[in-house]
């Protein structure tokens, strides 16, 4: 009986893996490694890779700086409107990217909600790399916030209280106890958000447009190449799959690495504050 159940589980798992891997395998069957690496000599592909990496890194920095304290608040305090805040955070996850693009234009566009204010300050966001960064922040930050809230919630509140009773300030408790203990979860969330940001397409093309070397990211370049040279689109697509795979693999390897480096300071933190 249990053997038959196991067989069902294995079959379902094999089917899922085959379905998820098949389209990606098909890309690599059509692109030889030589063609893939030849794209590193294609100026448009290199420009797109650099724009993608630069905007995703800046967006990740913003998400980490603002998202980490915000997630700590949402994870450790109970207040009115908390459920609404948590729902708002999840909304961009299910929003069609085109809607995200329209929403960004409605907010930050020249005729948008803040358009007049920004214009008075001499700032124009659409068609700039700042627009790409905002699009990436909008679609990628929920991935980090959700992971960060879960990571802070799983920190033993007893340890936080112990730190406070031993005289550490709330800020010091956050820095020396909560942050190191939540680090593996924060790292995983940050990497996932970074990978999602690399793949961002719909909001970017509406809000930032597409111009080589300025706002054309890898996904935008792949879409543009569909019109010109399908083989180049395939090769750059394969390149993006490899970059994303490397980022996700880093998530899997990260926990063992952060556990090793982060637990020792968190153990010594309370003793030094005595």
């Amino acid at each position: 009986m249990s053997r038959r159940f196991d067989a069902v589980l294995v079959a379902a798992c094999a089917l899922a893996l085959a379905f998820l891997a098949l389209p990606l395998a098909a890309v690599f069957l059509r692109v030889s490694p030589v063609e893939l690496f030849a794209q590193l000599g294609n100026p448009a592909a290199v420009d797109a890779l650099l724009v993608s990496l630069k905007t995703s890194l800046i967006a990740s920095g913003l998400v980490l700086c603002v998202g980490t304290p915000a997630a700590y608040l949402l994870a450790t305090r109970r207040f009115r409107g908390r459920a609404v805040a948590l729902t708002l955070i999840e909304l961009p996850l299910v929003l069609p990217p085109a809607v995200a693009g329209i929403a960004l234009l409605a907010a930050f566009g020249r005729r948008g909600l803040l358009g007049g204010t920004l214009d008075a300050l001499g700032v124009s966001i659409p068609f700039t790399q700042a627009a790409v960064v905002l699009a990436v922040v909008l679609v990628a930050s929920p991935f980090y916030l959700r992971a960060a809230i879960a990571a802070f919630e799983s920190v033993d509140t007893g340890l936080l209280e112990a730190s406070r009773t031993l005289g550490a300030s709330p800020a010091r408790t956050f820095r020396r106890v909560a942050l190191p203990l939540a680090a593996p979860g924060l790292g995983a969330g940050a990497t996932l958000a970074f990978a999602r940001g690399l793949g961002e397409f719909g909001a970017t093309i509406m809000f930032a447009g597409s111009l080589q070397g300025r706002t054309q990211t890898l996904p935008l370049m792949i879409y543009a190449q569909l019109d010109r040279d399908f083989d180049v689109a395939l090769a750059v697509g394969a390149l993006l799959v490899l970059v994303s795979l490397a980022v996700l693999l880093a998530v899997k390897l990260l926990p063992s690495w952060t556990r090793f480096t982060s637990i020792s300071p968190s153990r010594s933190a309370p003793s030094t504050s005595l």
């Binding site: 020249r110 005729r111 930032a208 597409s210 111009l211 543009a224 569909l226």
Partner: peptide, 17 residues
């Protein structure tokens, strides 16, 4: 911006961006 079809060009002018 270099758009992939004419619809993208029209939209960005209509929106005033």
């Amino acid at each position: 911006s270099e758009e992939d079809d004419v619809g993208g060009i029209v939209a960005k002018v209509v929106l005033g961006e």
